[in-house]
Amino acid sequence: MQAITIQNLSKTYETGKEAVKNLSLSLEAGEVFGFLGPNGAGKTTTVKLLTGILTPTSGTCRVFDLDPQTEANRVHAVSGIVTEHAQMYDHLTAMENLMFYASTFGINRSEAKKRSETLLAEFELTDAKDQKLASFSTGMRQRLSLARALIHRPSILFLDEPTSGLDPENAQRVHQMIRKLASEEHIAVFLCTHQLRYAQEVCTRYGLMDEGTLLVTGTLEELRTSTFSGQTLSIRADRLPAGLPFVSCGDSFYTTSIRSEQEIPDLIRTLVAQGVNLYEVSVKKPSLEDIYFALTAKQTEGF
């Protein structure tokens, strides 16, 4: 069964803002889907539509074949949801918070306790489990939110900017946990973020959003081949090779674009024959950021 199916989904707010425009996509169980785009792209709106918090203006969406519009509570039963606005109680301890949310999912005390302890250990919060949340740092809160979202063993996780406000080290930790969850527990993950660089390390497939429109979906390789015709070969050498299409990019680095890896051996042979001293040769693949900027540039140029 598909974890998520979205068909021609649109949402226009009362203010007239078209936050999501004719969105269609689907997500398999066990996939980590990176839903990427800058602030205001419509990511949070999409999550709210999928979790039944907002009503679509047109189109449909389903989560494990449940309609978030009519059976939001059943969608919630299979979903773990982490958003920026979904906070927990400051006057309760980490353990008390988890126990409370477990009980709202109908989990009995003894099982809730076991599950909470496992999750606290997994998210490295065992030492802080009896501390009130008021004393928690942003990183600790974020990890506890993930633990809270997992308390009822959901089949899908909605993570809306789970690393916003975290330092790179903490963000890294959260991402490692997300990846581990997806591979070990076979949970589908719908990860929204504007930090494209981080997302690249976590997701199996991506969707790039811009101003409510889904620009493209696919794996990183698919996005690369569909967006860029080639790759970039970069060398570090003692001088600019003559007669070859290399351009200098400072610090003894020279780059050229190639269509495929097959061109590399010939290029190197030519360089060596010219007597160029080579210190480094690398193929640079376009990053998600490169792809995103290329796509948005195309959009504004082409249309």
Binding site: N73, A86, F105
Partner: peptide, 16 residues
């Protein structure tokens, strides 16, 4: 305190 949203994500209906 932004805890209402979290509570709404539980599997109870709004009415409950």
């Amino acid at each position: 305190r932004r805890t209402l949203e979290t509570l709404l994500y539980c599997p109870l209906t709004l009415k409950e």
